[in-house]
Design a protein around this nucleic acid. Structure first.
Lengths: 347, 347
DNA sequence: TTGAAAGCGCTAACAC
DNA sequence: GTGTTAGCGCTTTCAA
């Protein structure tokens, strides 16, 4: 009472006010240990009424837990990746909000994870979620070596790592097959950085899609490792010249560059060439024509990753790999022109 | 030594190993209190060699600090706003990385700040940074009432609040003036939510730009409060019909919708109408034609906000308002057609 | 069913 | 200059 949240009320204050011991109050709160039903009620009511909050520092000190998890993401990703991480993080926070845990940020870089190291060494967190995985992932290796609970959003080849991921491979394969069914014979994949695990999976999915249709994967169908817009544009150019009927983009950042390039060059979509993307972050939404894309749910990824980590921290069993779904959205950008028209055109 | 980080080495272990008291070790680390130079060296060396890390919980409990700050952002912003928050957050983290502080996330909603309240009540942070400000801002009011150090990214009308912001008003006024100098007579502003402080400032800047050129601000030049793409499209339509020579968009989300709508309707930019945006997040980059826009630096905003908060926490003096700069980027989208041509067209 | 007391690891008077 | 001691607020044996 009195002034505005004058003094921080402690467990001792509660105990004194109720004429019980701190132990009793502690038991009422935690639910651990035996305690009289009536006593528990009294304590709980008092706490509620007086808005008492246990001090997490003290609790942490006493039970050696931090009640924090770390959300580690690249500090240098391109604009297009940002919404993914932000939404995924929202998914993580959603889960922690219902618990005693909070989320601490760490920025990691491909070749520098010192901040993550500090957070872990300083014992600020009980576990960490890695927002993405690299082919050669320093964070994964470090976390493994430190023997701290962690889960990755994205896959990894490291053994014994708890992972949460969409079924990238299957999704990409499915979309590739769908494209082929649309009538596209010559597909070309334009891909990004070779050091991201997700890109590896997407490439594999693409190849599987082709193979399952009996199409041989040739080198000129794989334009990979494009890191800059310039490189993507060149790849798009190459694809068109090589007679691609449909350009498949590894993500929507690439897709956007491709679309812009084609527009600049007066290449019509889907008239001259089809366009599809293996990832849709909504940034392409509203594009004319609407683009065929794979849809994942970043927030769900965050949800699952967080729930998994929390279980892991509590010592519960968790699956080594949680696979989440996806949607294949076929839109105008791959509306293959009717065959008869195609033929009449060719004649 | 021994196994892999077997037991957590404490300040007591260090003291014992060195044959000094815990106090001495503490003093060597903190730099506070008097201590012999040689002793300090010995301690520091030992610590370094044995990779000792003070337990932040214990430290926090003892000195009543949390060594965490809270980064509070909307949990429901649209895709276009995400990169801003993410970059701003990176700016915050950049600063904390050089300190003992870490960053804790809180998701707030326009009408529900319970998570922020929990973090504050639970005493998990020493201060908070609000990622955006609303006209009627629950978070600002709550934080003020709790008397906890905090700074806002964005302006507010609440008294006594430490704010960091770009000079939105001046920037928008300047761009508006520049547009007028380009020869545009009839400008129309298409704006978003009326509940965001930043939008208020931009509107004001726009009006000031007009007024300083002796142009009267009429209602049909202000198409505000558009929250959905549909609304923006309607506004764009209205603007064109009403004979707008240049459409000024309050941010790039709006700008994107406008561009798409004009393209759909076959309205040429800048041929038929000019386009400018009061915010550029790079998402528009690569657009054809390139769009005239105001450029801010979200990361710098984060940097300054964080440095300010840290000072505030340390009880240092800080300016009530830090104003950061901006850039006016004039591009093709407002390349007004030469007058003579215009005239010949009209005749 | 409840309580006393001993920590958890660190800081800060207050001695010496 | 250095050590002693008493907390910080909570959990957890161990008794009662």
């Amino acid at each position: 009472m009195g002034e505005n949240e004058k003094k921080n009320i402690t467990i001792g204050d509660v105990a004194e006010a109720l004429g019980v011991s701190k132990t009793t109050v502690s038991r009422a709160i935690s639910g651990k240990g035996r305690i009289g039903n009536e006593t528990r009620q009294r304590v709980l009511e008092y706490i509620e009424k007086n808005n008492y909050r246990p001090n997490p520092m003290a609790k942490g000190l006493a039970d050696q837990k931090k009640y924090n998890i770390c959300w580690a993401i690249p500090g240098d990703s391109n604009v297009y990746a940002l919404p993914f991480f932000q939404r995924c993080m929202a998914g993580v926070c959603e889960v922690t909000m219902a618990t005693d845990y909070d989320v601490l940020i760490s920025l990691v870089y491909e070749d520098n994870i010192s901040h993550l190291e500090r957070i872990v060494k300083n014992k600020k967190v009980d576990g960490v979620i890695l927002g993405r995985t690299m082919v050669n992932d320093l964070s994964v290796k470090y976390l493994k070596s430190m023997n701290i609970p962690f889960v990755t959003v994205g896959s990894t080849k490291e053994k014994g790592v708890i992972q949460v991921d969409n079924d990238q491979e299957k999704a990409c394969m499915e979309m590739t097959s769908a494209l082929i069914k649309c009538g596209y014979k010559k597909l070309v994949l334009i891909g990004g950085s070779l050091s991201h695990m997700v890109n590896m999976a997407r490439q594999r999915g693409f190849e599987m899609g082709l193979e399952s249709a009996g199409i041989e994967v040739k080198p000129d169908m794989l334009l990979l490792g494009n890191e800059t817009s310039k490189e993507v544009e060149n790849a798009a150019d190459l694809a068109v010249r090589s007679g691609a009927e449909c350009i498949v983009c590894m993500d929507d950042s690439i897709c956007r560059d491709v679309i812009l390039k084609l527009r600049k060059d007066g290449v019509c979509v889907p008239g001259d060439v089809g366009i599809a993307s293996f990832y849709n972050s909504d940034l392409l939404a509203g594009n004319q024509p609407q683009v065929t894309a794979l849809q994942y749910d970043p927030k769900e990824l965050g949800n699952v990753a967080c729930r998994t980590l929390l279980k892991l921290i509590d010592g519960e069993e968790v699956p080594e790999k949680s696979i989440l779904g996806y949607k294949v959205l076929m839109k105008e950008s791959t509306q293959k022109i009717d065959n008869s028209i195609m033929l009449s055109k060719k004649h």
